[in-house]
Design a binder for these strands. Structure first.
Lengths: 145, 145, 145, 145
DNA sequence: TTTT
DNA sequence: TTTT
């Protein structure tokens, strides 16, 4: 008897950060920007455009899809739930971070044929495309969540 | 080319706090709890029930509806957008609060006939029901948002 | 790169019809009413209340939950997808029926303690509550979908 | 106490048909395709890709936006409600058509700079871009809805 | 056929 | 009738 659902269409702020837990579970995190259009109120007040940044968290298969195919600037549809996480920062101050745990993702930026074969093909830069964890991936056991 | 939508069904944590801006605009705030069911993972791990608290903000007509009809414990459907607000707390520490600005609300707790006539009827307690701002309302010019 | 999502909160028109396929899969169907409020246009035109009836289809576990707990008049949250089905009616006329295939259901009508133990308890009428297929259930191999 | 919400991301089947009522209100209609991915069931059964066609109806400002900017093949986000309409076809047979009345639309196909100035610029074909009703528009008083 |  |  409860519903906690978020749906976003926005642009990826930077390449996903992908980590692998000791048990092999993949976790991807990245930020996604949604932007409200500017508009004018009935009384003439101008309300400027406004960007909201969302902390997206993906698990397992979705995280691996993100690792292979999601890149900075891409437009995505994300569906998931709101989840708050509590921690002490480096100064011992209690902090809350609100994240979107995604359970569905649709990629709205068309990929070219070359990019679709064998995963993402880096844009004139460095590493080869691969099925292994990409350059911005790591295996870790100290994930904070 | 952007979407920022939240949909919640949950229970109201306490009676709404309603304020009136100098220009007469009503603003209501309250917390809403959504609860994920407990479940068991494939590997046998028990994941307990978990409650997420959402900071709901309503404006204008919706705020006035909340003032009249929404009470602690009520089940609501809320639709709106995620919006982060930044401020310095009393210790000068920068804080972020994530709020849900609602643009649609449906009341899922049936009201009895007596409660529906002339607004909310308090439950055998104190103040008279009224069309004026209720007991937990105030007129203010120092809203923090 | 596609999304087909429906979310409804409404009232069940009659008790679910539940069938079991030969392979044991349960399928429940029922209608759900959503009602738009009456309102007045800017030019003074009155737009009356309007009810839309939705054809809900549930499968497997959700169908069995509906069989046990969902009854005429109940308020439900339904999430699913739109799906059209084509068939020839008894006069050989080609017909289309639009159904909502549900993948999530939340029951918004509170059940009393007695109703929650061991499933739905019929309302002063006939058949005993049971874990077997209920009175309006049947095992069939000629489901039209 | 009711919700009737549809959210679609799909591709436009053909250019919108835009009509103007005698009172000047614009109405746009077009079909939108959403496609489920093919997948394999646990028992090995292959479920092929499946396309669902939705009848989209837009009013007023949204209809005019569609007239100017929406074209066959475009990817759109559509949010609205399900609405059934009943009519007798040319053979006197009672028919039902299910439509999506949209109240929000986001265009997910990027437009080039030239296309964004002064509305849609036809693709190497015929008519000039214009602020007047486009070629597939008409003023009519016999709208079937 | 539901509900408010 | 779209798209991948």
């Amino acid at each position: 008897m409860s519903l906690n659902k978020v749906q976003l269409i926005g642009n990826v702020g930077k390449d996903p950060d992908v980590r692998y837990l000791d048990n092999g579970v993949a976790v991807a995190t990245f930020s996604l920007a949604t932007t409200d259009r500017a508009y004018t109120l009935a009384n003439g007040t101008q309300v400027p455009e406004r960007t909201e940044w969302h902390n997206i968290v993906l698990w397992r298969g979705l995280a691996q899809t993100a690792e292979k195919y999601v890149r900075k600037g891409d437009k995505l549809y994300i569906e998931g739930k709101i989840r708050s996480r509590f921690y002490d920062d480096q100064n011992g101050i209690k902090r809350t971070i609100v994240e979107i745990f995604a359970d569905n993702m649709e990629m709205l930026t068309p990929r070219t044929a070359s990019q679709q074969q064998g995963g993402y093909m880096p844009q004139a830069t460095s590493q080869p495309a691969s099925q292994q964890p990409a350059a911005n991936s790591s295996v870790t056991d100290d994930l904070p969540f």
